[in-house]
Design a protein around this nucleic acid. Sequence first.
RNA 1: UGGGCAGUAGCCAAGUGGUAAGGCAGCGGGUUUUGGUCCCGCCAUUCGGGGGUUCAAGUCCUCCCUGCCCAGCCA
Length: 573
Amino acid sequence: MNHKNEESDTLTEAKTPVSNFIRTIIDNDLQTGKHSKIVTRFPPEPNGYLHVGHTKSICLNFGLARDYQGVCHLRFDDTNPEAEDVEYVDSIMEDIRWLGWDWKDKLFYASDYYEKLYDYAEILINDGKAFVCELSAEEMNKNRGTLTQPGIDSPWRDRPAAENLDLFRRMRAGEFADGQMTLRAKIDMRSGNINMRDPVIYRIKRASHHRTGDKWCIYPMYDYTHPISDALEGITHSICTLEFEDHRPLYDWILDQLPVPCHPRQIEFARLNLSYTVMSKRLLLTLVKEGYVNGWDDPRMPTVAGMRRRGFTAAALRELADRIGVAKASSTVDFELLQYCVREDLNKHAKRVMAVLDPLKVIIENYPEDTTEMLEAINNPEDETAGTRMIPFSRELYIEREDFLTDPPKGWFRLAPGAEIRLKHAYYITCKEVVLDADGKIDKLICSYDPASGGGWTEDARKVKGTLHWIDASNCIPVEARIYDQLFTVSDPMSAEEGKTFLDYLNPDSLKVIKALAEPSLAEAKPGESFQFLRLGYFCADYDSKPSAPVFNRVVTLKDSWQKKGVVSQRLV
RNA sequence: UGGGCAGUAGCCAAGUGGUAAGGCAGCGGGUUUUGGUCCCGCCAUUCGGGGGUUCAAGUCCUCCCUGCCCAGCCA
């Protein structure tokens, strides 16, 4: 994968954190002496790529560990071999590192605990707290009851412990078929909480595991595995999302029955939702598998890999996580906030360059024909250390077609017949003549320049309000610009109207490929390198770039308070 | 009409009985060789609604309303 982490800030310097209910709990636990050090964990299942929703959880868990001088473990919750794959564990580790976090030597897998988990299960059985059930999946489902009706006890519920133990051992030994029996916790079939209705804790599943291979044919369930894994690792605060709230009684029940080293506290918070996108692994998988996007790292995807490729920076993603806060109210954050975070970071770090997406030729009639002069251009006004570079200027140039209007509206201070504008870093030019082609379309502009305005400035107090970006027609390179827009046309693709699905809201214009022209320096752009194309937006070199044929992904546009006024309606993109 | 959770501005969110932080968005102005950045100002007489307790309630009590999650041998 081609990317690099252009971090200039450091994660060790935490800003003053905004208070949230989890910090309040931790502060309290530290103050009362319940804990002297905190241990958190990020527990992904390796069954898909990480998305922005996960970055909230990652930054929360690793951020708490950083701020409280604790540690955060990375633990793969790999208890369902059918869905999991090393491709995913690799991408997850890569993404977390790219985000700037370090789990040091605290890398774990739930599958590392299979043996211990098994031993604990035998304890449960011996204590009469678990039983082997021979109900089929359908029968069990039927006996479970409904949301409003209690379930009924399994006929196998009161088997003697010895028999349960024998059966469970034989389950492990592979004597039974997949699905033929399960190990269930013996809790309460009449509980209002369906998770407590004798939940399955082990199932028989002959699937090759990405780490344990074919060693096991029984696999523990999440609700059983997770609390024990947390306890074995000495996790103090086990932070998860809201949908696990009613699993907490089960989490606590499991730990209460067993001689585990400690009893971590599960705390739930609201997951991140972002407008104009979807945040479920299942839906993202659909987009990938059915070809609506070009893979997990398609720049339109809300995956960490996709956003990285698009040019969103790790610092921006972390900033987003900091800004959205942590609470228990389900919420959907405006995509605008993410864009703000990206612009904020890129504004400080991206080198300014010039490129023209939709060229309109300009001929400077009073500029010598066989001259090319090199002009000095500042690389980043926000960062003096970024230095300057030289850019070529000669008689024939290109400007952005939308920067010229024959009959401009009031308030227009770009180019128009007779108008004078500044070419960034170059000269003032005045439009003398508009040349049309056979179809009546504007073919080129004949302009004159003021030789006294070198560098884009004159000593007189002349008012030249407009400044345009441009490129030298004979000293530029062709580049491919991939112009991205929201993948969906509605802010909440999940709440589809009758008979529609989220796929019906895919934005047909989410990607436009444009042949653009850019200043020569861009020929050397490295994949992953970000630039501000002056006045157009931030662009990031894609790994599809070839040495002489760079490809740029548009990360985000610049804010445009002029366009917002609605005066210019037809923008190229 | 089972269980769990949540409602503070368009979107997030702080607030832990003492008189509604902050950010994004929006609006207005200033600076500007990017209509960018930056800077300044405005933006909740009120916290889902009604009662109640209190000198004092977003915070406590009570009733109601709305939304989200749960019936995988997924996590």
